[in-house]
Simulated assay, not measured.
Amino acid sequence: MEIINNSPSVIIVLHEIYGINHHIQKVCEKFSLKGYDIICPNLINLRKPFNYNFQEEAYKYFMRNVGFDSAVHQVKQIVKKAKQQYDHIYLLGYSIGATIAWLCSVEENVCDGIIAYYGSRIRDYLDIMPKCPALLIFAEKEKSFNVQQLVISLKKLNSDVYMLNGKHGFSDPFCENYNEKSFEEAETLVDNFLEKNC
């Protein structure tokens, strides 16, 4: 999915395990209306996204058929091509997309900033020191790990790290964990981050 406004800045939106669903489409449209060009690669390469009820199947599909290494390679290729056209390149990822953005940040001059929403697998890559500005936004409650401990570790890595009220998916209006107040707080953090780093 691409939306072209002939902007000097592009946001590469990286979806969750589900693929390019209504939430990701809305994110793309919102940033397009703010004047950015948008590139949203279909990392799972399926015509239809997974339904939220099939979370486990979606995760298994991603890990078996795509995996982080392949996804990072795909995104770096997109960034390389985008560099020929854009002055500013940002990666905006949700969940696995957030972890992919984090993994891309390890190299010099890959992009001008990453924004990562609830990238729970970032905890597996704490040896990374991002080479660009990084905004990391986490939900306060996660089933599989201690968010507070992760936030403390990440703050040592010179990143802007925030923990907002709610559960994984709080910024997705189509998700049962949607939290409007935290969604709005996150929006403000993202807008300020982009303004500061543009």
Rank of each mutant, 00 (worst) to 15 (best):
52 Y>D: 06
94 Y>M: 11
145 F>D: 02
138 F>N: 12
14 L>Y: 07
125 Y>Q: 03
90 Y>Q: 07
10 V>N: 01
86 Y>L: 02
146 N>D: 12
173 P>H: 05
80 K>I: 02
149 Q>H: 07
89 I>C: 05
79 V>F: 10
180 E>W: 12
153 S>V: 01
3 I>H: 01
17 I>V: 14
155 K>T: 05
91 L>M: 06
134 A>C: 10
54 F>L: 15
125 Y>S: 02
185 E>I: 13
45 N>E: 15
102 W>L: 01
15 H>C: 10
97 G>F: 08
47 R>S: 08
184 E>P: 00
172 D>W: 03
85 Q>P: 00
110 V>C: 05
128 I>K: 07
198 C>F: 08
159 S>Q: 15
168 H>R: 01
9 S>K: 13
135 L>K: 08
167 K>P: 00
122 I>Y: 07
123 R>H: 05
11 I>F: 11
187 E>Y: 07
16 E>D: 14
90 Y>V: 07
90 Y>K: 06
52 Y>K: 08
75 V>K: 07
72 V>E: 11
50 F>A: 00
179 N>E: 13
112 D>N: 15
55 Q>C: 10
158 N>A: 10
154 L>A: 03
41 P>C: 06
52 Y>N: 11
77 Q>R: 15
62 F>P: 03
32 S>Q: 07
98 A>T: 07
71 A>S: 14
189 L>V: 02
194 L>A: 09
56 E>V: 12
67 G>D: 07
104 C>D: 05
12 I>Y: 14
127 D>P: 01
160 D>P: 08
145 F>E: 04
182 S>Q: 04
115 I>N: 14
110 V>K: 01
81 K>L: 13
187 E>R: 12
27 V>H: 01
16 E>K: 02
18 Y>R: 04
154 L>W: 11
194 L>S: 10
78 I>C: 05
15 H>E: 14
150 L>N: 01
15 H>Y: 06
171 S>M: 12
76 K>A: 01
126 L>A: 00
89 I>Y: 12
46 L>R: 15
